[in-house]
Amino acid sequence: MTTTHSAEAPPQERLQEHFDATIARDQRIEPRDWMPDGYRKTLVRQIAQHAHSEIIGMQPEGEWITRAPSLRRKAILFAKVQDEAGHGLYLYSAAETLGADRADLTERLIEGRQKYSSIFNYPTLSFADVGVIGWFVDGAAICNQVPLCRSSYGPYARAMVRICKEESFHQRQGYELLMTMMRGTEAQKAMVQDAVDRWWWPSLMMFGPPDGDSPNSAASMAWKIKRHTNDELRQRFVDMTVPQAEKLGVTLPDPELRWNDERGHHDFGTPDWSELKRVIGGDGPCNAQRTERRRSAHEEGAWVREAATAHAAKQADRARKGTAA
């Protein structure tokens, strides 16, 4: 823990007061600042989960890089998946400012002790999925993450600013692919509608369980790690997506979806929360496959990482002997 042991160290209550006041003034907590254990743990959990989601999230779309149907789409998709690796790197670095270790977090991921977003446990069945993931999944991620640019923890908030910019760009690229496909052949239009049908409900589940059933939300809201509840963000996503679906010419697969004048929002059906529980619990269509890929990449790369470490040690040794001589 960060409690300092110097003679002038203020007592715990003073530190807590200072922390609370910083949060109340909407100022940022920085890595060297004192913070309560619970705050640190919650942040490490959330940031690690976010980093894992970026890395696992490379898989469903990454499958299509080698098959992208034009060189321009290939370059866009390749660059997007690369960005996700970059996002994973910034986020693991943000977690490291809290004393976590990237290698340890990776172990936790492949051992199933830390989670990643449930959405990446669904398969990508056609190239239209690449567009729909950009539109829905990056869109939902933006809804979740833009408020995190004001998160109380400085390194996380700053990482989010950069990530959100890149993700809004990915979302546009996805939407633009769908627009192009919807102007194309009947087969292409059908692919888009099919992908929309498959991804809509899982995308709504990305915001997490309903507020009444979200155990970690209250503390995160109080600490201003999180700024809006799951249901607020879900509503916002639905309200923003409906006109975009109309413009695109696709139907969102929810018979209960309609504008409610009184509320000033769209009403929509209830996602199948038992499905979300199953997927989070490890029984989604692709959980085993996604974790296994991450594990095999990590294990098959072990000799490379060991070689790099051994070489660096030998170099340091040679430099020391060189200066000593």
């Binding site: 490379m58 390749f78 790197l89 098959e300 790369g301 490379v304």
Partner: peptide, 26 residues
């Protein structure tokens, strides 16, 4: 190089191999 995607030994290599692949594709 694209076949390395999600299979690289480290995230830094994931990024670097994709960079090289993207340059060549360009």
């Amino acid at each position: 190089l694209a076949e390395w995607t999600t299979r690289a030994p480290e995230l830094e290599e994931e990024v670097a191999l994709a960079n090289i692949g993207l340059d060549l594709l360009g």
